[in-house]
Design a protein around this nucleic acid. Sequence first.
DNA 1: TAGGCCATCTGGTCCT
DNA 2: AGGACCAGATGGCCTA
Length: 202
Amino acid sequence: MLTLPLSCASGDCSAQRPSWGGGSPKIPAEVGNPREGNARRGRTKAKSEVVLTKQKRNRRMKANDRERNRMHNLNSALDALRSVLPTFPDDAKLTKIETLRFAHNYIWALTETLRMADHSLLSVGQQELARESFRQPPTTACLLELTSPGSISPCEWDSLYSPVSQTGSLSPTDSLEEGRSYQAADAPACLRHSPHAFPEFV
DNA sequence: TAGGCCATCTGGTCCT
DNA sequence: AGGACCAGATGGCCTA
């Protein structure tokens, strides 16, 4: 999957891979002489320009390497995130955007579960319901379904949060509408928005 | 074959 | 000055 770059660290390979991995076809703007007069100064000047060009190309190659590594690190972090998300083994690998959305919704669901458990502990009669909530985390299918942009489905949220949803619904489905159900004051700062009211993730 | 996803290159900007 | 970060561009691969 990960196509490791052909090793270019040792030499100038930028010219050897005209069609490799895309890249901008833009041509460096300052290839020619900026001023005619400078070209007449003699070899030393011309030589220094060659050196400058080489240095520039060298810097570019090093920057490309760093950028490649940076993106690899980013992808590694994304893989680590995927590995802690509940998916079936035979599920297709989540895309990057799906992984982020899924994680966002998953955290939201877990937070809600904890919050409801705390809330229900106030009432002895609801302790059993709280335990039940812990035993039944949101299903993979449910969370995966929520990763689809705009796909708001009751899914199993209602059953998951049945103790509360019957009175003052906390399901994302409801919180999407007017944003009234999911009280900002009840959530940590990072979860002030319900998953589906979060613009970047919709 | 069109569209989605991805890796890579690149130049610009900000920070140390 | 050099590195980190970012967004745009480009081309390859895969799937419906």
